[in-house]
Design a protein around this nucleic acid. Structure first.
Lengths: 204, 204, 204, 204
DNA sequence: TATGAATGAGACTTCATTCAT
DNA sequence: TATGAATGAAGTCTCATTCAT
């Protein structure tokens, strides 16, 4: 049970750090801030994390895991029709946007703070976004294989372009006055653009 | 003419800072580094710039001006046909990508370093990107007015989505092994997605 | 018998500390290291020793006791001839060198670590070395009384000088590649120097 | 001339550090102490020395240079007779002892503080002492070659033993109430022991 | 105008020690 | 008696900025 308490403590610290990093920024958050917020001595921090960089990495991992969870919940081989495809896209988009609307600091953490820190952490974020692009590519390839998407589709870069829309949408969403509305706009814009990828066969 | 010398000196400092900020990053560049590179005393720095933040702002302004130059060189009311529109998109894209391929640190400066600094500088970058999105929107509206783009186009968000593709393309391009090739891929992907916006009238 | 267990535990801790202090050094050994090595909680440490300084003192006492044991095993009034004297010197030297060759960290503890700590612990070490010098002086005085050592011998400082040779020899020995060989060299050098102290009477 | 001022400043800091390290000890001297003593900001310290360890190394080098100066001022091939040899030994001894009596903290620095710090600095000190032993060996070999010292002399270890006497003498001297008197005792004891190294040829 | 020595706030991190369980 | 989580003093070092020359 000591094990459990330790885990709880670690989580408390990580949560506090996520929020502070995501609101004040990495540089403007110091270990003392995290400790004060939890009303603990700041030496305690170092029982749970090696150093400031270590907890930032953990925080980033935490947030990227949410993206990965969305990715893992998808099945790109499933949609048989372009309508099913569109529904799936909508479902994934909503899930992703909802996750970040519910935790705006988390979004700021990976889209802003991580960007300015260093190549290593940037690479981790990029890898996650790339996994999302790969999922998108898989959906596109499925659509092409099923015949409802254009045969001449450069899935490699188009999928990344679509992923870019998704993530730029998140950046806009988290700073919009009405995030849910903004999110819907982006999903709609995504659909409108993606609709151009449909094969021109009658009935598609 | 002393005025001119002063201006030259300021420019030298700014150029050195741009490169250092864009390669080492903002936090890892210190005023002394900039001064050493120019073989001047680092007290001198403060005769040309108020402080470190000030020169970073100037550097960002410098880079954003390049985007603005591209924007200013465009005339969104001109294209009469979808072909002309596509050529214009291609021209603008190439200009923008070429500018950043020629100066990768500049791109890192606004896409990575500025992101991690604070809201104020982020807002400046976002404003520039927003101007680019506005230009894109103007092109879309022109196309809609001319009849070669779909009448039911949500130009507001679609234009931002297209702009997002452009800028994400730059991020990919500057870290790609063969940037020119990568840039072409992104322009092609953009075109492929944008082609879906054409009105379905015969001949479009 | 609980008393016995307590005593055993204390000894284990002390042994571990001796080794760590003597290998890593005082500053680089922390209480947690000692505890980890014994697979005990580091709070437990404080049930057996007042504080870090306290156990270092105990460790030093432990090592100095070995020197004292050698001293106590000697009988400076015994040697009747210079040959007996030389044999005695050799015996004592060998015993001392063997003790430290068998436990090099112990030697480092008193010759290096204690030196850098503070005056109090330095004084304790010096007192032990002084006792050894006093023993040496007693041997010299016995030799002088028996007539086989020069009558004009400044036993006070000469004895300290001889003791200095012994202890410097230990310092060299513990860092030599072949300690036993090095030890023999020092004992021989000692003898060669001490031989000059013989009275010049025929037959000496 | 700025160069000169810089050099002066560095020297002031080094002198202050030598004294503090040699009186309070390395661990109990912090950078702030040094800065306060010189009434300067403690950031200034780092303009002249890389870090605390760096200045300690410099201080040690400073002190060892004094030993080296004594070594360099000696000419082991010169003494033609045992009397000349003894005078030379006396001269060198006095020079060395005087140097450390005049600056006791310097002696404490290399004999106590350096011992407790780490292997690297210990090695530097040992190297200096070893150079002194080498000088001693050269004197012994000269004496043997000239015929006034015993032919069967193990100069390698005997020289180290003699050097050990010199340095142990310094350690005693700097903590004696009357250092000059103590120094004379040690030089005398050294001579008495060394006299036993004379060859037994008549007249030697 | 140019310089670079000086500054000191402020950040991170360590670890001996305490104490509730 | 044993534990190990918590503590916070203390110390090192960085660097943007100032200012006398």
């Amino acid at each position: 049970m000591a094990r459990q308490l330790t885990e709880d403590r670690r989580r408390q610290i990580l949560d506090a750090a996520c929020e502070l990093f995501g609101t004040r920024g990495y540089q403007d958050t110091n270990i003392a801030d995290i400790a004060i917020r939890l009303r603990m001595g700041h030496g305690t921090f170092y029982r749970y994390f090696k150093n400031k960089r270590d907890i930032f990495d953990a925080a980033v991992g935490e947030v990227l895991a949410r993206i990965d969870a969305v990715i893992d919940g998808a099945d790109p081989d499933k949609p048989l029709t372009i309508q099913a495809h569109a529904r799936e896209v909508s479902r994934i988009g909503k899930a992703l946007y909802a996750a970040f609307i519910a935790d705006i600091p988390a979004a700021r953490l990976i889209f802003y703070e991580a960007a300015g820190l260093d190549d290593a952490v940037r690479a981790r974020v990029d890898a996650s976004l790339e996994r999302f692009a790969a999922l998108t590519a898989a959906y596109l390839e499925n659509g092409r294989a099923r015949g409802y998407l254009r045969a001449d589709l450069d899935t490699r870069t188009v999928s990344r372009a679509l992923a870019a829309i998704v993530f730029e949408g998140i950046r806009h969403t988290i700073r919009a006055g009405e995030p849910e509305r903004e999110a819907r706009s982006w999903i709609a814009a995504y659909q409108q653009l993606a609709s151009g990828l449909a094969s021109s066969r009658p009935g598609a």
